[in-house]
Design a protein around this nucleic acid. Structure first.
Lengths: 340, 340
DNA sequence: TTGCGCATTGCACAGGTGTGCAAGGTGACA
DNA sequence: TGTCACCTTGCACACCTGTGCAATGCGCAA
């Protein structure tokens, strides 16, 4: 062996006695190809251990074999579950995963993302909530020609570019469960304003109360921003109320943990004195005490589906990936009928 | 404008009336360059909004401007903290972050990583524990010519390629704290066999007991594998002992949460009946009740330093990044003197 | 004026793959 | 046998940047 470098498409072509173009067709599974030629070339490829150079492909195709995760999601668990879901799909393919956090507050956010997408020529991106709710971002992807899938709690305008979950219905079911247990005085710790997930979950909460004919005064609604600390603050406010709510629904698990801390500090028994209901089913939910009754947000499945929507259909047959995923109630120990 | 494409180095060269090479020198900050020419070229670059094409650069340089995270770490929190730390350093640079989980158990693991590194031609990788302890992996990076930094709890053989923390001393200090509070019957939930972090933490535990002249029978040591469930199992075993330990040190927070669950199920008061000490200081530690006394593993700082070791020193002056980081005891509410 | 050294610049090719278009080959049919 | 259509293949160039080495220009001394 004169050359210690990795074999190139030229080496394969020479060895196989065909042209580069033909080798290229073999690699890219062109149907316009004699079966015999294909077999011959494939044998040489296997013998030389040839692997196409991704950098050269990226240059020639003007497209990189990279999938991006663009997010501003504060929840570590969620972000990592999405990554894992995508990586599961990408494993064994030529795609790699690149992570790109953005700052929703920054005035240059859109320009930053544009620069990122244009420079890196990503094959596609998965947009996590809440940034996925930004329509300008989706339009940006469209205009650049970058495939994208938005994850969200929204309705399904465009199944090709969206995977969603039925948060509203799931929350309605969960809160109905509280009502059926006898709770009438139920607090809500809602997510930040402007987040669709927060709106959907609040709507589900209200749906349940309305269906049961239970009034829901403003005082029973506390603001949160999906963090533990904001949950703690909201818990302080709600548990100061007289009469005290007998149950609290929190729009995510971290805030539920915050409320639980307040209950502990006040010596309240959970679920005896207070039932707590969360949302997400992060590992935190199962690891705190008592184990948290929560709504499982099927984020891993959604991420897998998103990835398949991006890279699927490349081997010819376009697989129809589901776009709607069901959040389901997970019953643990943090909910019980109210005392008395 | 005839061409709607992005400007290339040729456009810049033509506009500026110089050759490609000269433009290239401006971009790559070559010192062999007339100051006047540099200014002229930079003006054209700014006017055209020229940005070098990363794909073409990757091909020509045979090196991609990507930093990889190679890991098999089961802890979501840890993985994400590392990512965040690295991304903090990479923000504003031309580098992107690509994530690559591996399967330590797989017989083809090393080959997989080799293929990944050779194909993608990463600029550098950060190796997370426990896979970072694999010497063959480090040698592989060396032989391929891929820069790397190992994160670990190990001693510092090679500061250029390693960032480490003083787990052993930190644990010794933490367990000494338990002893000073009056605990004499202290359990250990150790990490999985073959993990250096597990060894170091166990060694620190034993150091403290030996220094205080306290015997430590095998029965007080339970095996774990850094998961909540294994912590739970270990907790069951330790809390079945007679006499029951008055304190338990767990080699990470998740296992500590598992032990806490066992204590709750048995109606034990923490820290009244049982003190629990964790390691890592993940958010879980602060979010469970009672807040967990734990050792803060400075993983974010370590990750930042690792990233700087990889990409630093490119602008001329090589910055000396620290390689050793101090884990420190965080005192919360899960530790108290034993009763009686 | 010539020669020399130094600072600066440019040519031409490398890096590896994809593709438009034209050419080559083959079989069928009149 | 000639013609035509169709299937298969190959050439040459595009994609964009980096670099070895030669060339250019300039000042200065002999």
């Amino acid at each position: 062996m004169k050359k210690s470098r990795q074999p190139t498409i030229n080496d394969v072509a020479r060895e196989a006695g065909v042209s580069k173009k033909t080798v290229s067709r073999v690699i890219n599974r062109s149907p316009l190809l004699n079966e015999e030629t294909r077999a011959k070339v494939e044998a040489v490829i296997a013998r030389l251990g040839y692997v196409p150079n991704p950098q050269a492909r990226a240059l020639a195709l003007r497209r990189n074999f990279l999938i991006g995760v663009v997010h501003d999601n504060p929840n570590a668990q969620t972000v990592l579950r999405v990554q894992r879901g995508i990586l599961e799909v990408l494993r064994g393919t030529e795609f790699e995963l690149v992570v790109r956090p953005v700052d929703r507050g920054s005035p240059t956010m859109l320009e930053d993302v544009r620069a990122f997408l244009e420079r890196q020529r990503l094959f596609g991106v998965v947009l996590l909530p809440p940034i996925s709710e930004n329509d300008a971002l989706a339009e940006l992807c469209d205009s650049i020609g970058c495939r994208y899938v938005r994850m969200g709690s929204a309705q399904l305008d465009d199944p090709d570019h969206m995977v969603a979950s039925n948060d509203r219905e799931a929350v309605k079911e969960a809160v109905t469960y509280l009502i059926e247990m006898g709770h009438r005085h139920i607090g809500l710790v809602q997510g930040p304003h402007g987040f669709r997930s927060a709106m959907e979950r609040r709507a589900g909460f209200e749906d349940a109360l309305e269906a049961a004919g239970i009034p829901h005064p403003k005082s029973l609604v506390a603001d949160g921003n999906y963090t533990f600390d904001s949950g703690f603050q909201a818990g302080v406010r709600l548990l100061d109320l007289l009469p005290r709510p007998t149950a609290i629904f929190c729009s995510n698990d971290e805030m539920a943990a915050g409320v639980l801390h307040v209950a502990r500090q006040r010596g309240l028994d959970v679920p005896g004195d207070l039932s707590i209901l969360g949302f997400d089913d992060t590992t935190l939910a199962a690891h705190i005490w008592p184990p948290l009754t929560t709504v499982r947000w099927p984020v891993s499945s959604m991420a897998r589906s998103a990835a398949l929507k991006l890279v699927g259909g490349l081997d010819g047959d376009a697989v129809e990936e589901p776009s709607m995923f069901l959040s389901t109630l997970i019953r643990r120990a943090s909910v019980a009928p109210p005392r008395g």
